[in-house]
């Protein structure tokens, strides 16, 4: 079963990424390296990416054939989409365990989403 681990990070974590304070970036990044290494060693990761901070996001809509472009992320929430992993695990229970280990779960939250397999839908 394929799941998407959607990391929704706290404002503090997002700020730590760009912090110039000594050690702040390392303190933020350390757990992420540990986590992704652990998943890779377990052989569950299919792919994953970190995203630039939400203030670099742009939203696009097309209404009545006209393009609408807006500065900023879609969601106006305390926690913000900061990255994701696609993992392949035998059960939903196993996915939850991996989600709980995600650094975002400790300070923000993780949304787990099942990847759709289009054949099944038919």
């Amino acid at each position: 079963m394929q799941y998407m681990i959607v990391a929704a990070e706290s404002e503090e974590d997002m700020a730590a990424r760009k912090s110039t304070e000594p050690g702040a970036f390392e303190a933020y990044m350390g757990p992420w390296f540990k986590y992704s290494t652990e998943m890779q060693e377990a052989g569950v990761t299919l792919s994953g990416n970190a995203l630039e901070t939400p203030d670099t996001a742009t939203c696009v809509r097309v209404r009545d054939g006209k393009r609408q472009v807006q500065d900023g992320p879609f969601a106006d929430t305390k926690e913000q989409l900061g990255g994701y992993f696609i993992i392949d695990v035998p059960s939903f229970e196993a996915t939850k365990e991996w989600a709980a280990k995600c650094p975002a779960a400790a300070t923000g939250l993780v949304e787990l989403r099942k990847v759709a397999t289009l054949e099944e839908e038919k």
């Binding site: 630039e52 901070t53 203030d55 670099t56 996001a57 742009t58 500065d71």
Partner: peptide, 10 residues
Amino acid sequence: VRAKRKIKAA
């Protein structure tokens, strides 16, 4: 600063 960061990052 934020706008200039976006110009570069995005």
